[in-house]
Design a protein around this nucleic acid. Sequence first.
DNA 1: TTAAAATGAGCATGTACTCACTCAACAAAG
DNA 2: CTTTGTTGAGTGAGTACATGCTCATTTTAA
Lengths: 190, 190
Amino acid sequence: MARPLSEEKREAILAAAAELIATSGTGASTASIAKAAGVAEGTLFTYFATKDDLLNQLFLEIETNLAQTMMAAYPAKGGSRERIRHLWDRLIAWGAANPTWRKVLRQLKVSGRITAESRRRSNALFRESRELVEQSMAGHVDPERMSFYIDTVLIGLADMTIDAMAASPKKQHEHLKQAGFDLYWKGTAV
Amino acid sequence: MARPLSEEKREAILAAAAELIATSGTGASTASIAKAAGVAEGTLFTYFATKDDLLNQLFLEIETNLAQTMMAAYPAKGGSRERIRHLWDRLIAWGAANPTWRKVLRQLKVSGRITAESRRRSNALFRESRELVEQSMAGHVDPERMSFYIDTVLIGLADMTIDAMAASPKKQHEHLKQAGFDLYWKGTAV
DNA sequence: TTAAAATGAGCATGTACTCACTCAACAAAG
DNA sequence: CTTTGTTGAGTGAGTACATGCTCATTTTAA
């Protein structure tokens, strides 16, 4: 190999894409992404075969980060309520700390450009933490509703809570976080 | 006036736009929309000044329909739980009956092409039914949480419930609808 | 040396929107 | 009840520009 690819450039392209997609949607042009990343447009295509490829890799990059956060944050000790509450706090903190990534995820999910394979890989990333959540929730929630309450509602409700927080003064943030968790915990009780 | 505009054509264009935006996103071209509506591309621009104008009118058309459904469905009698439950059933029924519109709404909301004025008008459409919901929920929910639980969570949770239903066999639909409502009602209790 | 990364002008295709023109629907004149 | 004139809806080829992607050429690290 005469000259290696630069991980630095790859990440600069992904970061630039995230920034532009968050504000302009997936219609952000490869020209604008390359320019923002400080590389020529041709370079973008040596790191990513197609624009769709870039989009899918960006999707997985963000999902990997979120999955790792959930995994790393999961407490080994404490009652079920405390464990879910801790996870809830970490989810909210992740969203509040990564507003760009959250916008990107929303854009990519409705874009129709994320492949089935990417979604499959994403699911795999969350499998481990999902199982821990299920263990913690066992007994608290009707087993027949477990899948709905974990796979659909948990992250969806966290998302809505972060949105509401973003649209409110800081003073209310803790209050909204509590309101979101109470809704989830009391609502899922058997 | 030499020749009146045809309401029929206007609606054909809006319907075609909805169908194409639901599947291809707001990137659907004016050429493809006009073709699907059975009119020339030029005609589209005599009914809608710009593509953004078409998008905004489509948005308000759908929001008006949803707001009317909520208003018309609101029961005058019954306890608070029964009233909210009835509204919940109508919301779910609306979403299940209008999958295309739901997809369009999602696309338009993340598109960044809906003006502040359109959102303001949309809010106005829901004002009356929102007040009825607030009256029904009074006493059941902490007043400080009222806005979050009504403005953000109610429709958001209904949306998630419809998504889960769409991804499940019909046999489970009633079960999911109940699970979603229980979560909302028990979760919002003071 | 040399192979591969990096470049950016160039290419085919698509885009929202225009415009000169046609013709259908109305109103006034006969 | 015709005839005729006027207006503006309807048309689709045309326009200027943007798009994803290529490739001949240059630069750079092994």
